[in-house]
């Protein structure tokens, strides 16, 4: 198998008023092409900052050290400009909070097409064609109409579908979904997870699915990585880890999943 992302000795530090805070502490892991890796751990364990640092979208007070080879390019060594050529084009990002993650004054169509227009120099019409394609993939109805709508006119679930659509505009190799269903109700959650399963099946996309909810991860992921306080506690095949966890912390996390989900 071909490794798409290989992280080695990654640390993330934040400069805070109480001194340096180590949010991610010297972690290493890798993701194979076509794999869906679930990253679990309670909130504050460093899941989000791990992937923010790799894609260069840390807050101003954060710094990342280590190596993050993506397609044999160390992302941590790239300039902001070089990174922005990769973000949105080769790596798609889906955020936790769909209610605030879209630009309020820009219509859905423009938020989608700018991705292809900037990265692939597509004309407006070509980009619109692609936009309709991805909205179809994420199963949004009445696409023509939707393109002219503004985020506030859409429900949370619809906005999250739009976010997934945005991440798919340039047919990325890799998408990072950071708690994509956490802000949504259970029914919508299931539908969104179905989209990820479809993407895995039909698009051969590599996915990193971050969630504090092991139930969510187990529905999509092939492999799982358990994080706690900036460390990786355990990693392995999703089924195996969930059935026979080796580590106390993993057992503890699993005990929080409701019975019926197992």
């Amino acid at each position: 198998m071909e490794t798409i992302l290989s992280v080695n000795g990654l640390s993330v530090n934040f400069d805070t008023s109480q001194g340096l805070f180590k949010a991610v502490d010297n972690i290493s892991f890798s993701i194979e092409k076509g794999e869906c890796l679930g990253i679990a751990g309670e909130s504050g364990s460093g899941k989000t900052q791990t992937f923010f640092s790799i894609t260069g979208i840390l807050s101003d007070n954060g710094t990342a050290t280590g190596i993050a080879d993506f397609n044999d390019v160390d992302l941590l060594k790239l300039t902001e400009k070089e990174l922005s050529n990769i973000r949105g084009k080769k790596i798609g990002f889906i955020f936790q909070d769909p209610m605030t993650s879209l630009t309020p004054h820009m219509n859905i169509g423009n938020q989608l097409i700018e991705v292809s227009m900037v990265h692939e120099k597509k004309t407006k019409n070509e980009a619109l064609k692609k936009a309709k394609e991805v909205l179809d993939i994420v199963k949004l109805p009445r696409i023509e109409n939707l393109l002219k709508k503004y985020p506030h006119e859409l429900s949370g679930g619809m906005r999250q579908r739009v976010m997934i659509g945005i991440s798919l505009m340039c047919d990325p190799l890799f998408i990072i979904a950071d708690e994509p269903t956490t802000a949504l109700d259970v029914t919508t959650q299931k539908e969104i997870l179905k989209i990820f399963n479809d993407l895995k099946k039909f698009k051969d996309i590599t996915i990193a699915l971050i969630s504090h909810d092991i139930g969510v991860i187990s529905e999509v992921s092939d492999t799982i990585l358990i994080m706690n306080e900036g460390h990786i506690i355990e990693k392995g095949n999703c089924q195996e880890v969930l059935i026979s966890p080796k580590h106390e912390y993993t057992k503890h996390l699993l005990s929080c999943v409701p019975e019926w989900m197992k």
Binding site: I57, S101, T103
Partner: peptide, 13 residues
């Protein structure tokens, strides 16, 4: 958050 999204989309500054 929406500016973070714009950055994650790789939009130029």
């Amino acid at each position: 958050n929406f500016i973070r999204t714009a950055r994650a989309k790789g939009m130029p500054k």
